[in-house]
Every structure is written in structure tokens, then in C-alpha cells.
Write a protein that binds this DNA or RNA. Structure first.
Lengths: 221, 221
DNA sequence: ACTTTATTTCAACGGTTGTTGATGTGCAAG
DNA sequence: CTTGCACATCAACAACCGTTGAAATAAAGT
């Protein structure tokens, strides 16, 4: 049985919190271990005691919340499928199971999740790490969703399905990034941080895209 | 009249090329000036002679191709509008004028443009720089396109229009990033570098999204 | 030939980087 | 009380960072 001295776990968590916040804002190379540990209020060497290296700390930050996230989204998907025992669910319902848990947790506990989501957004668009890391942490869940979408779109070609998911992924992660770009563009009318607004629009937008690309050919007589 | 010694311009351009390639792969902080100048085959100090600082070099990299890019896209849009003197163009045509020049130049001159596009993708999703830099370099053009879309979607609400563009921007830039994620996900069936494939699908996907979000309400009797 | 000016090289600066080993502290088991 | 172990502190390592000033080179103007 592992010992649990006074605040060991608490320290480890504080380091992860500080690292998450800084990595999300400036990326892996834009942050020093000293800045992280200063934010965590702990000695520099403790970073290397609890984690072996800066890179391993980075991975630990990513891994920490990935499990929770995947579980939430899987539960949402299974809930949808349970609601449709025989007929396939609508595209909107499937997409919503994919996006809603994320945007919802962001709308309800922004301080807890904002930084992590922004970090994922940055990684997804990084040529260096995007392919490998996103695959490592989210592939099983994504494949599960693609299965559901395939069933709901029986006429789809495989390539169209993958590219459609790709577009969805891009739209979703840019929303997570919360760069403030839409604030500038719309002169303050829209806000990057308004996850309710994104939540209300993304499933409809994306579902229409899926249908246009993977659905049965529109009969334009 | 500025003097033009032997290969002054050539050196400046070689520095920009090397910087572009490295910044695209590892981001601003993941690259050292020494690595850049080693890639350019020139002395470190020359970076500070031709550009004042690392940050200014970064901006110069961004600026160099932005002009060309904006001109190409504006020309494509004006061509579409000239084709429709009275009636508004279709959403697909407008979106295509927005995306096709980029994906086309990527498909035809990949070595010249791939790194720059990947860099833009990374910046667009960076909380630190995304808002400010994308606004600085691409705002006038984007507003021009939003005008065209607004005319083609007379029933649209302003917020829906901005969010739809936001989703488009995310889908487009993730495509530029070429992270190899879709290669992994599809087990090699789709390739991140296949811009023809993205080109063939993106306008249809995105136009359907715009119509679903900004179009007239679907009459579901 | 001499000056001027633009480009390039060289060597170095103070400061910071990720990382480590030695040492100390506090608590539980023997 | 002493031993053992998890956790924390401290000081330091070599390597590297962005940046600069002074000096060499080279081409153009006079």
C-alpha cells in the first residue's frame, strides 16, 4: 500500500495545474520548467522528482484529463444509441454526442477545462505532434463515433467519412482555442469564450456537412 | 535607389525560407536563431542585420506570402462576382473562391507553400497569437468574403454568419497543418498531403453548413 | 586610389535552459 | 530511538539562448 504523506498528491496536482495553464498559452517550448514550478509554488527539482522530464510532464498533463473526456463522450454516444435500439440515430444526435460533452463542460466549468481544451487545440494543429498525440489519446473514441456515423450514413464512401471528420475536428478545436479572433472579426458581437453559442451552432453546421458529403446523392431533377 | 550587392537579396530570402520551414514545424519558441541560420547557411549575426530581432523575422516570414495569398483570393472572388452581375452567386462558388486558391497552390507548388500554410494553421490555433496575427494579416479579405456571403444568404443572422466562418476557418487551417492524423485514422486510406482530395470535398461540406445555419429556415411541415 | 556604404564574419556578453546530485525534513514501521 | 522511505530544498552543472560591437570584405561612387 503506497504511503500518502501530507500533501504529496496535492503537490503533484498543483504542478499539473500550473503546467497545463502555461503550456496551453505558450506551447511546450514557450514555457520553462522554472515558470511552471513558480506557478505551482514549488521547487524546480520537484518537477523532475514527480515526473522524469519536461516532456514527460507534458504528456502527463495531456493524459490527466483525456480519460475523463473520453468517458464522457462515450457515455453520451451510448446514451444516444440506447435511445435508438433499431433505427440509426440522426447525424445531429451523433455529432452532438461528440461535441456537446466538451462544449458543455467548458461552459459549466470553464476554469477547470479551458486551458486543457486550448492545449488540445494547439496540439491538433501542430505538424510536429498533431498526428501522433491526437491518435494516441483520442483514436479509439473517434473510431467508435465513425462507426456510428457509418451506420447512419449507409451510402457514404470511406474517404468522405474520414475527410468529414477531419473538417469537424478542425472546427471543434479552433473553437477550443479561444483565440479571440471571432471577437475581432465581429467587432465584439461574438465572443470566443461563448461556448453556449458554439454549442448551439456546431452540430447543425457539421451535420449538414456530413450529409452533403456522405449522404445519398441529392436528386436534382 | 537601393544598392543591390551580389547576393544580398538572395541571402535575405534564404533566411526567410529556412525560418519558414523551421517555424512551421516547431513554432516560434521551438526554433533557435542559430538553427535557422544554419539552415540558411549564413552567420548568426546576419539574422539581426537583415531583421532586427527573432520576433521581427517571424513577422517578416508571415508577411512575405500573405500579400500574394490575399491577392489570389480576392481575384477569385471578383471573378465569381463578375460571373453573376445581377443574381448573387451560390454559396459553393463563394466558398470555393475562398478555399480553392489556397488548396490549389498547395497542390501545384507544395514545396513553395506547404510550410507557410502549416505555420498559419498553427498560429490560427494559438491562444497567444491567433487572434491578433490572423486579424492583422487576413481581416480585410475575410470581411470581403463575409459581405459576399451575407448577400447570398439574405436571411442570415450576423452571429450565425460569423460562427459559420469560424467553423470554416478551423476546417481549413487543420487541413493546412498536414499533421498526418487522417493518415493514422484512416489507416493510410486518406493522406494529409492530398490537397486534391480536400479541395474536392471542403466547399461542399462547408457550403452545406453555411446553408443549414444561415439559410432560410427549412420547412419541415 | 580613396571614400562610402552594404554585406558578412568573428568572438563574445550576460542570462537562461533542462537536468542532476547531495542534503535535509518529516512521518511511519521496526 | 532508530531505521527507512517519500517528499522537499539547495546549489550547481554544461549547454545554449537572443543579441551585439568591432572588425573584415566587397562592390559602387568620386
Amino acid at each position: 500500500m503506497p504511503r500518502m504523506p501530507r500533501n504529496a498528491k496535492a503537490t503533484r496536482e498543483r504542478i499539473l495545474d500550473a503546467a497545463e495553464k502555461l503550456f496551453a498559452k505558450r506551447g511546450f517550448d514557450g514555457v520553462t520548467v522554472r515558470q511552471i514550478m513558480s506557478g505551482a509554488g514549488a521547487d524546480v527539482a520537484l518537477a523532475y522528482y514527480h515526473f522524469k522530464s519536461k516532456r514527460d510532464l507534458f504528456d502527463a498533463v495531456l493524459l490527466r484529463r483525456a480519460k475523463t473526456l473520453n468517458e464522457m463522450r462515450l457515455a453520451a454516444l451510448e446514451e444516444v444509441e440506447k435511445r435508438h435500439p433499431n433505427d440509426p440515430p440522426s447525424i445531429e444526435e451523433i455529432i452532438e454526442a461528440f461535441t456537446h460533452p466538451l462544449l458543455d463542460v467548458l461552459a459549466k466549468e470553464p476554469d477547470e477545462w479551458r486551458d486543457y481544451m486550448a492545449l488540445v487545440a494547439q496540439i491538433n494543429n501542430s505538424p510536429e505532434w498533431g498526428g501522433a498525440l491526437m491518435t494516441r489519446y483520442f483514436d479509439p473514441l473517434v473510431k467508435r463515433f465513425l462507426d456510428a456515423l457509418r451506420r447512419a450514413l449507409p451510402d457514404s464512401r470511406e474517404e468522405d467519412l474520414f475527410w468529414s471528420y477531419h473538417f469537424l475536428s478542425g472546427a471543434l478545436t479552433l473553437t477550443f482555442a479561444e483565440t479571440g479572433r471571432i471577437d475581432n472579426l465581429s467587432d465584439g458581437l461574438c465572443k470566443s469564450s461563448d461556448m453556449e453559442a458554439a454549442n448551439a451552432r456546431m452540430p447543425r453546421f457539421v451535420a449538414a456537412g456530413f450529409r452533403a458529403l456522405c449522404g445519398p446523392p441529392a436528386d436534382e431533377a
